[in-house]
Nucleic acid binder design. Structure first.
Lengths: 236, 236
DNA sequence: TAAATAATTATTGTTGACAATATCCTGTTT
DNA sequence: AAACAGGATATTGTCAACAATAATTATTTA
């Protein structure tokens, strides 16, 4: 195999490049959840030595995308329903706070930008029926904007570099209810209005409801999945 | 210098041992905030090679105790007032949720244990007047118990492995208001009562107030520090 | 045949050397 | 004297070999 299979972005260290590549490979499902990874295999795949690879693995472990057992090996995280519920719960707390802060701190120009983002999402929903991927990344766009608007660097990093990555894994493995995008858009609108009215209390409540609602959808999808498989079992 | 200065705990990897040692050195202030650390120096100090050391550094970077600039170097984090406010804000969101979950999930026996913990703290306050250290670790004990009682592994890890470490740094560098421990104990009692009454709503609100109050104390300490130094400046 | 145990293999942990990069110092130029 | 350029030095990034540990297989024994 040829060496240096990774895209060489100038200024980035090998460890960082592999970190990014591996992260995307995990999130996209290219590397299956729960599968065991060996350092040798990855080092060969990416054409680097094990040193920088191990550093990348440690960082991935830090943001919970890999689970490592000393001396034994490391596996890609397996997102169980329990874990997903935990993630959504933490998300509710963190993004609720983020919406509150946004309502306290955003100025008119920033709120205007947020409104424009929602308009763009609306036209996207009209045009790209069924193209879940873009709608979902759009959704994350909105949440990312609020997180940034909180003006709390720590909060934003926690959300963007840890939580949202896990969330993207959830999304890659569960399909979406067809009526959800429009409902989500309306909820986003309500949140923006609360922010525009400088109502931190309400902004937080609405954001928390919004995320709770999203979790209920995902949970139900899980349930119907289970029902289907038990049904199948009964007939086989 | 003799080799292997670190305490050799069986089963732990060198990287993990150095991770723990370095973490404590940073939190206790043994390594000054903002000071630059070089890999060679640390490798010699702990008597290991740079490989495992770098892994430990990456992990410390992951929990925000070190700040690293590629190719340039890595420094111990400097906790500014802004950062501390950010930490307390995130903490408010996370621990508020954790108290809510605790109120939903804890059983009678667990609540009893919590009450006993508070009694122990009370007698500690009576006995160890002025011994801030134990009182503060006691405070963290309480919060850690609630976090564990949330029964949300993700939330608990976020709190204990990231937030509480940063919090301990804050505490090492700011002295405490003398009347705070008793006030804190009472607030803890209120929270436990809300949990005992299975009132998640109230438990969350009280916890958020409690943490907000703690932040206000710290903030005021900062302010009086600043006042003192400006005063000094005027006279010099 | 099944369980226990020893040998083998695969994988991770650790090291020291080398390469690449940034920082610091020195000398030159304007 | 200040600013810039270039080289020396220190520091980080990368590699490949070696050591230690865990998983696997083969072997022996009850």
């Amino acid at each position: 195999m040829k060496k240096n299979n990774i895209t060489p972005i100038t200024g980035q260290t090998l460890s960082e490049q592999v970190f990014d590549e591996l992260k995307e490979a995990i999130i996209s499902g290219e590397i299956t959840q729960g599968s065991k990874i060996t350092e040798d295999m990855l080092a060969k795949k990416y054409g680097i030595s094990r040193g920088p690879l191990r550093e990348a693995i440690r960082k991935l472990e830090g943001i919970r995308l890999l689970v490592r057992i000393p001396h034994a090996g490391t596996r890609v995280v397996t997102l169980t329903q329990t874990m997903m519920e935990e993630i959504y719960t933490v998300r509710e707390a963190l993004e609720g706070m983020s919406a509150r802060l946004a309502a306290e701190r955003m100025n008119d120009a920033e709120i205007d930008n947020l409104r424009q983002l929602l308009e763009k999402h609306e036209s996207n929903i009209d045009q790209s029926e069924g193209k879940e991927y873009f709608q979902r990344e759009g959704d994350l766009d909105f949440h990312y904007c609020i997180a940034r608007a909180s003006n709390n660097e720590f909060l934003m990093q926690l959300l963007s570099s840890e939580l949202y990555q896990l969330l993207r894994i959830c999304r890659y493995q569960s399909s979406q209810a067809p009526e959800r995008p429009l409902k989500a858009l309306n909820e986003h609108r309500q949140i923006v209005e609360a922010i525009a009215n400088r109502d931190p209390e309400l902004a937080e409540i609405l954001m928390r409801r919004h995320i709770n609602g999203a979790w209920n959808i995902v949970k139900n999808l899980f349930k119907s999945e289970n029902d289907k498989s038990t049904l199948k079992k009964e007939y086989s």
